[in-house]
Nucleic acid binder design. Structure first.
Lengths: 336, 336
DNA sequence: CTGAAAGCGCTTACAG
DNA sequence: CTGAAAGCGCTTACAG
């Protein structure tokens, strides 16, 4: 069975395709009866306009690209769900692009998205140098960064206030009475992680507490790495009584390390995580965490590209959302 | 900056656009020098063929739809990653469609994918009646079911051997010495869950063990629901010494219930889960699980649609993969 | 080996 | 209020 086209509808209605197009797009003035008749016929023929043709003829593709490091990472999976939902609501579909933060893959996807003529791109993947995004900006494609920012890119962005998040974590732990703090950070080229650490260290400092370097470890984004680095710290002469972890994966590694050493969470060592993906709610104990508003971030990122796309002159907006401390059961006053 | 088109390349090379098209597609015989010259020019102009135009002119869109209940569910996020990777390798991009298993959303997405002229669709969402897929089949769109099957649909599929998985779980628990078994199932319209339960019950039966109905609970796909139902069972006169849970979410709920009652896993009660998403590895203790080969399933599903799409006459294939028992630390012999 | 031309299914000035 | 026509950027017989 071959699909009905605009020609079929026009023929059936005894009008020109221009008229059919007009009723579809609500353009021009069409007499009420004609419109309804045409609508009827479209229904009857089960007509659906070919989006490819209409894109080529000057309309948009109503497709967005979503670049993330890895869609199977719960953080980005949750972001993706929000982007998808909100995009869909506005009429856009989204193409997923997992880059593993590899420049090569980013390049391929960027080129692909350009060929597919997507209307906009939401970028959650690490982009070291702006070069990679050039192709988008050259063709004035709407872009928005999510969960990261880079003023040099001159792009709109939405992220959580990482510095503030780090600060919240430190202040909470200090308030509980902890004085021997440590942090599991991500790789030092991840700016969001750097900010979190900085916020944490600053808050400690303003409390008169310094963190010597061996209490700050740069980890890969892996449970095992969090495990290893946490273990090393806990075996120091003066082990920390609380660990601040820059994401849920690392926190899980930390949890496992603490347990492996025969210690209890939170009695012997507290853990504060960052993100609040589903992972933070399934561990034992569930993790006290600095939460990112993932749903909201996804929604706002979509708004940013779509608005940017509607009016080219839209000023660059850099939205920073407040993080939230969610106290669960991985934190308590220090032992003794 | 406006993008270069095939006309620009042709003009620059002093040839017709047909020739340029031919070198792009490796069609016809073009003299070696001409080809190279044209390739050079394309490079120089940073030319990228417009995929929209080429799709309209008779080629494919090289886009696949992926219908799942929820991309933020780790199981489907992992499937999606595999589908994306393998699709991308074959030149396809994938549009995510989270349906929440709601007929209304399925309909909308089906219509959308049709309009966007995707080449094929991979379906991991529950589809009660085949009606919803009609639009695809009528237009002989390639489809493949993933993690579910429905012979009535006449579509290719790839899934794990659920029955066998249930059996594996039961046999393992029986071998450990358990005799009081219980299961947390999904909603009874989920056929894969039904199969798992059936395999489990059959294996128990062939061991001379019957499971009375109060030891089988149908749950929603939620941690809280697993928690509630598990708790009820554990408070029965004769509480089970082992729980078989039809997915990782339910198993996590079970873990929490057991703990809440002051019991230990696995000393007082064993738990066997199903799926083996990342969740199974972050709980304490990590879950013994019947694993689905998600990576492989995603890859095969892509192969199925792409092959189906290459040659219309391709016979329907229903691939059933073996499940694997992965023993971690949530299981042990029964107490006493 | 290469090109002229028709066509894919729409949209959009423009004319009436 | 409605239609003829050009055009979007490609591909593909077909002719030479």
């Amino acid at each position: 069975m071959i699909r009905a086209t605009i020609y079929d509808v026009a023929r059936e209605a005894g009008v020109s395709i221009a008229t059919v197009s007009h009723v579809m797009n609500g353009k021009g003035k069409i007499s009420r009866e004609r419109r309804e008749e045409i609508l009827d016929i479209m229904q009857r023929l089960n007509y659906r306009p070919n989006a490819i043709a209409s894109a080529l003829a000057g309309k948009k593709t109503y497709t967005l690209g979503l670049l993330v490091p890895d869609i199977s990472n719960p953080f980005f999976a949750e972001i993706a769900r929000s982007v998808e939902d909100h995009g869909h609501q506005l009429g856009y579909s989204v193409i997923i692009c997992s880059t593993d933060n590899q420049e090569e893959k980013v390049k391929r996807y960027v080129s692909l998205l350009r060929q597919k003529q997507v209307d906009g791109v939401i970028i959650g993947t690490g982009v070291s140098h702006g070069e990679l995004l050039k192709p988008f900006q050259e063709h004035s494609l709407a872009i928005a960064l999510i969960a990261r920012d880079n003023p040099a890119l001159g792009a709109s962005s939405v992220r959580v206030h990482d510095l503030e998040g780090g600060r919240l974590a430190a202040e909470y732990l200090l308030r509980l009475g902890h004085r021997r703090l440590a942090v599991l950070a991500e790789h030092e080229r991840v700016t969001s992680s750097n900010e979190r650490v900085r916020g944490f260290v600053e808050a400690a400092a303003s409390f008169g507490l310094g963190l010597s370097p061996e209490y700050i470890a740069a980890c890969d984004h892996k449970i095992e790495d969090g495990f290893r680095r946490a273990k090393v710290m806990l075996e120091l002469e003066e082990p920390p009584t609380a660990l601040f972890c820059c994401n849920d994966m690392l926190a899980i590694g930390a949890l496992q390390a603490i347990r492996e050493l025969g210690l209890r969470v939170p009695e012997d060592c507290s853990v504060v995580s960052f993100d609040d993906t589903i992972l933070a709610r399934v561990t034992d104990p569930p993790l006290t965490v600095i939460a990112q508003p993932m749903e909201q971030m996804g929604r706002l990122a979509v708004d940013l590209v779509v608005r940017n796309l509607a009016s080219q002159g839209e000023p660059v907006q850099r939205i920073v959302l407040p993080p939230e401390l969610i106290i669960r059961r991985s934190t308590a006053p220090p032992p003794g």
